[in-house]
Structure formats: C-alpha cells, structure tokens
Amino acid sequence: MDTKNIMIVGVGGQGSLLASKLLGHLLLGRGYDVKVSEVHGMSQRGGSVVTYVRYGDKVASPVIDKGEADYIVSFELLEAARWLEYLKPGGQVVTSTQRIDPMPVITGAAAYPEDLVEKMKATGAQVDALDCLALAERAGSAKATNLVLMGRLSRYFDLPEDAWQRSLEAMVPPQFLELNQKAFALGRSA
C-alpha cells in the first residue's frame, strides 16, 4: 500500500498530542509501518503547530509535504486554511469551526479572514466543518475536542469502530476514558 498521510494542525496547547498517539496506536495495530512527527518547544506557546502521521507498508520521510496530505484534521479554522496547500488534490479536510485570534489579529495589525470554509471548498478540497468545541463541551469538557475530531475522522476510514475503541482504551487514562469515548461518539455521529 502507498503511504497515506494525515496532518493534524492547530494552535499550540490544543492537545494534538493525544490525537496523534491514538492514530499511531491504531495504525500500528493494523500492521502498518507508521511515522509520527511532532513539534516541541517554542511553537507550543500558542503558535501554529502541525503533527504529521504517515502509514503504509514502509514509510521513509517523517514529514508530509505540499500536495501530499490525504487528510488535514484541524482544531481551528484559520489553521486549516493555512495548511491547505499540503492537501492532496481532492483530499479531505476535517475541521473544527472554532476561531482563535492570532496575536496580529488581537493587536489589530490584521483581520481574521471571513468565509474560510467556502474559500477552502472553492479550491476543490472536500471540507467537513463542525463545531467540535460545542460537542466536546456537551461530552463534558472543552479539552475533549481532540476526540471529537478523531471521531469525525473515523468516518472516513474503512476500519471497524471497535479498533478505534481499543486504541482509545489503550491511550487514554482510565479516569478520562468515559468522557473521551463520549466525545468520540459525538464526533462520529454528529
């Protein structure tokens, strides 16, 4: 199988680490070679962050380049738009509609762009946008946004839900399992 590429993008501190851990566990368990590349350090302080997840028979590069991502999973709308060039022609964007102003917008040096979902669709990208924050809050905590996104992403994978559940159980601390399962289910079914 050719290598498949998933990019997880968002704002430093939003919790993409658990999402990539979950995917890594899931895909390794399906017998794939897997590479995950993360960013640590300064960008984690509220900057634009990206995690690359790649899987296939044999994965070489740990990163995903422009025009290569099968999926872009985004915690935040502007970040989905920022990384759009990395999407494969006809690839799938799964994004939360959450909007977090970057510092240039906060200081008034720039404006937050409008109609980003429509603009992304206009490039030919498949865009699945939903209010993951609201769903996470319904599940019990804003911190579970990552699992809402994973639940949503799972709809595009030809994998039994049971496999996702087993990776959830393996990767999430027991005291947060129920919350995260709920968030995952809401994302998957919403």
Partner: peptide, 9 residues
C-alpha cells in the same frame, strides 16, 4: 493569511 507566531500564555 495572518501569521500565528507563538505568544506568552
């Protein structure tokens, strides 16, 4: 698009 540089928390 407006950049998103890291910022103090």
């Amino acid at each position: 698009l407006p950049p998103r540089p890291p910022a103090m928390c």
